[in-house]
Design a protein around this nucleic acid. Sequence first.
DNA 1: GTCTATAGACCGATAGAC
DNA 2: GTCTATCGGTCTATAGAC
Lengths: 188, 188
Amino acid sequence: MHSKRDLNRHRIIAAADELFYQQGYQHTSFNDIARQAEMSRGNFYYYFKSKDDILLSVIKRRRAQVSRMLEEWTQAEADPRARLHRFARRLCEQRDQLLHYGCPFGSMVLELAKSKPALIPAARSLFEVFESWLMEQLAALGHTDDARGIARHLLVLTQGVILVGNVFDDPALIEREVAAIEAFMDSL
Amino acid sequence: MHSKRDLNRHRIIAAADELFYQQGYQHTSFNDIARQAEMSRGNFYYYFKSKDDILLSVIKRRRAQVSRMLEEWTQAEADPRARLHRFARRLCEQRDQLLHYGCPFGSMVLELAKSKPALIPAARSLFEVFESWLMEQLAALGHTDDARGIARHLLVLTQGVILVGNVFDDPALIEREVAAIEAFMDSL
DNA sequence: GTCTATAGACCGATAGAC
DNA sequence: GTCTATCGGTCTATAGAC
């Protein structure tokens, strides 16, 4: 059902999702979220029991979006290698955002590691979605034993590109490193 | 000279340095720093004009420490390749801290990107110290044209390892990926 | 007495919670 | 809309070294 309650919950989560990415979790206040969602701040505790609770809902939303995206890639491309290239090229598609705010998943884990370690497992689950999808593609390419290691290596490369691209604000670095990642994928 | 003023300034900066790393900049309050430095909070504005000013001093301190470390490596190892290996192996030496809190330089840039973009250039300067040292070693190995690109690629690898290691809290990943980085260095 | 250094009261603003 | 805690930041009385 799309009750009014569900719609308002969704508006709050969508607003928080964007702001948590652009400003970070701690640096985003209820007022910020209220302004972005065009709602009164007072209602929030009708929908959520705490700020942490909003974050958990944001993570859940992101996980659903990631799952949907990966499913689309799986259906659009029959070749596992072509699927991996989709994964790599997404860095270029999202380049400008990534250079500004970093990876929405990596930066969240890092922030929580410093201020809310109890929430790390929830944020880690986003990476696990990517990891298991990558492992499926790698297994299809014959890498059954070392699938996890290679999957994590691909995550290392992508997280590194984003972070260093962010540091130097260097769009060319993204393009160059993505090409190297694709070359590595072809060598598998 | 080591006036009392200098010593106390140093105590505040050292306390802030540790806390900013472990808890993040925003999540560390003046009270936290006061407790850690065993000083009264009221004094801080005798030594610094703002919290941002403390951060700038922390960055300056870290830059000096990094420069000193790189200089030591340069003097201890005559072979540029051996120097690069020092750089890689440091990830293993610092493993436990890195798994807990991430890279002190990378995580700072990421936090500032979301909340204090004006301070990014200061934090970036830490990476530039590493970058230029790496470029010197690469140039000595004959990589004069592509030194910057390779240097940044090494930074990509190291930042990626730390971040993904942090996400999965996986010490073995650090060891494995560092071995791969060293193999890459040998191929240069 | 002078100067450096210090402690802690105090401020307005704003946070999350209700 | 209100509550309480805490934030970064300010001010000042004064203690101790010289």
